[in-house]
Design a protein around this nucleic acid. Structure first.
Lengths: 217, 217
DNA sequence: TACAATACGGAGGGTACCTCCGCTTTTTCA
DNA sequence: TGAAAAAGCGGAGGTACCCTCCGTATTGTA
């Protein structure tokens, strides 16, 4: 399931913005950018590395204190840089998403319109099967509207539309398809924890069959 | 909050199934039994009712202590009867799963082979959209191997295979399809939290297109 | 009614979340 | 270069939740 829903009951109002007395809260337009001060930058990297490793090994439910311990920093440092578990996930995902986009371009260069699209989706499924919960979170993230993910989504959309539009022009997929729908569906394949690679492939085959242009209805 | 508007599900008269070998379909081999002593039985009911309501209102992450409080029993009583959150989910799901099965038979009586299957899957998606996290858990559960869910899965499988086999015999879906694959895929549609009904329907359309028999290539 | 079996409930120990604030490190600038 | 200012560090501590344990209360039975 999801990371424990962070809950409730924060007592004090976090409404303080600027110009507060002792206000130590600059609202950052881009959440979790790498800080500039030397020690802070080092700790940022340590935390992201530790988080990625921990998420892969033990799932995205890993205790944040465990991650801080792995990174060798105090829990306060983690929370200062990443105010929520989601913020930490975001930092980890940037690279994953970039990797997804890069693959799309690679396939576009080598394969025909439909095959390139299929290969890209296949690679997404393979990745999801091997990095279970991380990929699930990523899929969920693509459906969200967080300020941060909007940029990531644009990259994915650009890469994916390249493949999808090619396939549409070639007439090999139905023209009314929307990229985000396809990604959502493919992402859903591996959503439920345990998934054999064979089963994942069968599900993807169903989806791919559903994308193909109907010769005649 | 009405627990479920749909059929009170008499279900005591599961008419003899038309398809399949001599299937006996008694439902409910549940290990999670209602206790016999008066006070224990009363508390069991209170807990399941409170849990269903809480899961629908606040998701399946609701604190177990909150559920015990709603039910008006001590936390110890909850844990004695339901040793884990999963056990409580199981008790709630029995009715949900039964409802899913009942609908399958209803559609089989009224619609043609493919349309009945499509309607059943559509009803599952509709239900999932409205009862988000509960349905997500249910979908995940169908992929698990717990002793309890095995029985539930058999019921669903029986109901679903009725529809799927009819469609296969009519030649309207690909013959190599497996029911659990289809359910997994359809369940995945609503997995990522936020989902507009429109989008869910578009995704289901892709899946349904993928099920259809290829017109002999 | 009395006794045995069963169930109740909540205190309490453990873990994780997140905040707060005194201390330390880095950067700035005269 | 050497303070002072700015920025960051770390972990103690308050809270919520999980789950167990056991003295007390209720129910079924002879």
């Amino acid at each position: 399931m999801n990371p424990r829903s962070s809950a409730a009951a924060t007592s004090t109002a976090p409404s303080e913005d600027a110009a507060g007395a002792g206000g130590r809260r600059d609202v950052k337009p881009l959440p979790c950018t790498r800080p500039s001060r030397a020690d802070a930058a080092r700790n940022y990297d340590l935390l992201v590395m530790a988080a990625r490793q921990a998420f892969e090994e033990h799932g995205t439910d890993t205790s944040l204190e465990e991650i801080a311990r792995r990174a060798g920093v105090g829990i306060g440092t983690l929370y200062r840089r990443f105010p929520s578990r989601t913020a930490l996930l975001e930092a980890v995902y940037v690279e994953e998403i970039q990797s997804v986009c890069d693959r799309a371009h690679g396939f576009a260069d080598k394969l025909g319109p439909f095959d390139a699209l299929a290969a890209w989706l296949q690679s997404f499924v393979d990745y999801s099967v091997s990095k279970k919960s991380l990929a699930s979170e990523l899929t969920v993230a693509l459906g969200k509207d967080s300020e941060f993910f909007t940029a990531c989504k644009m990259n994915v959309r650009e890469a994916g539309d390249l493949l999808l539009d090619r396939a549409k022009e070639a007439g090999t997929v139905r023209p009314e398809l929307e990229l985000m729908d396809i990604l959502r569906l493919v992402g859903g394949i591996t959503m439920g924890r345990e998934m054999e690679p064979d089963q994942a492939n069968r599900l993807l085959d169903i989806v791919l069959a559903g994308l193909k242009a109907a010769p005649a209805s």
